[in-house]
């Protein structure tokens, strides 16, 4: 591993100041499971590592019917995965975090870190976007709030400005008669980066789809909402033909690339298959 300087700020203000001063080659360390790999494999030039683990107040973790979910920046994927409350309200997120690396990785990796890494294939992103998550961002003076789906500008790139630190993420409580699902597609059952990830959250009312959000991972430079597909189902009945049309629309909205993991054509085709399957699973999950 390349040598770097190491900092352990005691407060958000100090961390923010350090990051702003040190510039782009200073990086935040929370779980470290991505950052240390990037340093070791020379994927990112890093001269300063700013460990935020000593900063108080970043370990909020609450989940209930009234407030929804709140996950602080230092909460690990494994904590979320093994929480019965999250499993009850957000099984899609539990499924996603449960497929992130291994248990060993999830004991270190944070959910917020998975978000900030801004990988188009990150597992937590589609379900969180489908559930309307928002990020709290400390900017040196105070906090601002950003909708997760507006957070990403490209692979590894976000709207964060120098010195800004994401302190946590919140998800509104699930709506009545709502169901949610996340399907990850990879070659293996574990230790995979998604070749395609599809999350669907929907609400049913009198046999019709009252609301639906479809979020796709690994098929565009950032995770995306398939809004045209959603519009085809919103207010409509869940007929097989209608669902097939939604799946078709989601395929059209995706702009995947070809790489060693899969061809663009295959990824697009899987968006169709998995969107259909995710809608079915989300329907089945409605209480």
């Amino acid at each position: 591993m390349k040598r770097f300087e190491y900092h352990e700020p005691a407060s958000l203000e100090e961390a923010s100041r350090l990051l702003a001063e040190l510039g782009a080659t200073a990086q935040v360390l929370a779980g470290g499971t991505d950052l240390l790999v990037e340093i070791r494999e020379h994927l990112r030039p890093v001269t300063h590592v700013v460990n935020i683990k000593r900063i108080p107040g970043l370990r909020d973790f609450a989940c209930d019917d009234a407030q929804g979910l709140r996950v602080g920046a230092l909460i690990t994927a494994r904590e979320v995965e093994t929480s019965p409350q999250v499993a009850r309200l957000f099984p899609n997120l539990v499924s996603a975090v449960g497929q992130l690396g291994s248990i060993q990785v999830r004991n270190r990796a944070t959910v917020v870190g998975n978000i900030c890494r801004a990988s188009p294939s990150a597992d937590t992103l589609p379900p969180l976007i489908a559930d309307g998550a928002r990020l709290s961002v400390f900017n040196g003076n105070g906090e601002r709030s950003i909708a997760l789906e507006e957070f990403f500008t490209g692979p590894g790139r976000t709207v964060l400005r120098p010195g800004e630190i994401v302190t946590g993420i919140s998800v509104p409580p699930p709506g009545a008669h709502s169901g949610r699902a996340y399907i990850k597609h990879g070659r293996r059952k574990a230790m995979e980066l998604a070749t395609v990830g599809v999350a669907v959250t929907l609400e049913r009312e009198a046999g019709h789809c009252r609301e639906i959000r479809i979020a796709l991972g690994a098929v565009a430079p950032t995770p995306i909402r398939a809004r045209e597909a959603e519009a085809l189902l919103r207010g409509e009945a869940f007929t097989p033909e209608r669902v097939a049309a939604v799946a078709e629309a989601a395929m059209t909205e995706s702009t995947p690339i070809s790489n060693v993991r899969a061809s663009a054509e295959y990824r697009r085709e899987m968006v169709g298959v998995l969107t259909r399957r995710a809608i079915t699973l989300a329907m089945e999950a409605i209480q």
């Binding site: 470290g32 240390l36 248990i103 060993q104 270190r108």
Partner: peptide, 18 residues
């Protein structure tokens, strides 16, 4: 894999100072 504070982790992904 080692166990750190009761939890299994990859020791290659933990800085010793942590």
């Amino acid at each position: 894999t080692i166990i750190m504070n009761g939890k299994p982790v990859n020791s290659c992904l933990v800085l010793a100072v942590e």
